[in-house]
Computed example of a mutant assay.
Amino acid sequence: MSRTGRTTADRERGAPVEVARPARRRRRDTPRDRRRRRLLGVAAALAVLALAGWALWAGPLLSVRTVHVDGATTLTAEQVRTAAGVAEGTPLLRVDVEAAEARVARLPQVASVQVARGWPGSVVVTVVERRPVAVVTDAGTRSLVDAGGVLFDTVTGEPPAGVVPLDVPSPGPDDPATRAALGALVALPGEVRAEVAGAVATTGEDVTLSLADGTVVVWGAGTDAEDKAAALVALLDQVESGALEPAATIDVSAPDAVVLR
């Protein structure tokens, strides 16, 4: 046998010779190849982000399907939804929550409002309604007044329970008489306020309350409201227990020196 691995017989028969080929060398990565792969990866990531951005900004998957209303009592949920003006089908990211809040805040009954996106498909409108403290008559119209002096709703029949008739010359949040009288009413505990049949003030210094049993309470200025309320409650408790005789007038304008007449 020769070094080629062929026998004499093979050579005589003319058998084909197998020539060993060198192994194919693997192509090495170049900086250009790596840079190209990085660019392709970045392009793919940007495409995914663009698609996700479109889905959030304009796509139907994350759009408004419902508008929830929380906190409404005198207002109906539909009134609040109408005021908010958020259309169903609007992509959540395109809902202008500040504009919706401003529109709901224009409702007279609303003291404060917050509008929030509720992922994946809702908007939540949370309102805090004004709570009536008194009812005033102005230009022939009876209106409910909150603790801040804001006239926010009209009434034609009986006002809500616990709402006190208030007589002031110019009802409103900037009127000293209105603020002083409302401060007196708000300072009273609920059970005592329920016994107040009316309140009168011509200035911020001469608030007078009338109780249901006919007792007149001289409140005076709007200052020291908490001390005056505490003095009045203590006196009424003593009258109820029999420790004091009923008085036609209770003057708490100086809470440290109460006068009964």
Rank of each mutant, 00 (worst) to 15 (best):
R179K: 05
A197C: 06
V207R: 03
D227Y: 01
E205W: 09
A187F: 01
P171Y: 05
P171F: 07
G220E: 04
P169C: 08
P173K: 08
A221N: 15
A199L: 05
G198C: 07
V196G: 11
T178H: 05
P169Y: 09
R193I: 08
G204L: 06
V218P: 14
D227R: 11
P171V: 01
L182A: 01
P189C: 01
A194Q: 07
A212Y: 05
G214M: 09
P189V: 02
A177Y: 13
A180D: 11
V192T: 15
E226S: 14
P171A: 04
A181R: 07
V168I: 07
L209H: 11
T178S: 10
G222L: 01
G204I: 09
D175F: 02
G214W: 15
E226R: 06
P173W: 05
A225P: 12
G214I: 10
D206K: 13
T178P: 15
L182N: 13
S210I: 11
P176A: 04
G214L: 05
V168E: 05
P173I: 06
S170C: 03
V186L: 04
A181P: 15
T208M: 02
E205R: 13
D175Y: 03
E195W: 04
A221K: 09
T208Y: 03
K228P: 14
S210Y: 15
E191K: 02
E205V: 14
L185H: 13
D224K: 05
W219S: 08
D174R: 04
A197N: 12
R179H: 04
A197H: 06
G183L: 03
V196N: 09
A212E: 14
T223M: 00
D224G: 13
D175T: 14
T223E: 07
G222K: 00
S170M: 08
A212M: 08
G172T: 15
L185C: 08
D224V: 00
G172Y: 10
D227M: 01
E191A: 02
G222F: 00
R193K: 12
L188E: 00
E205M: 12
V218R: 12
L182F: 02
G198S: 07
G214D: 10
R193T: 07
A181H: 15
E191C: 01
D206T: 11
D206Y: 07
V218F: 06
L188P: 00
V218L: 03
A181W: 09
T203R: 05
G183M: 03
P171R: 08
E191Y: 08
P171H: 07
P173L: 02
L209N: 10
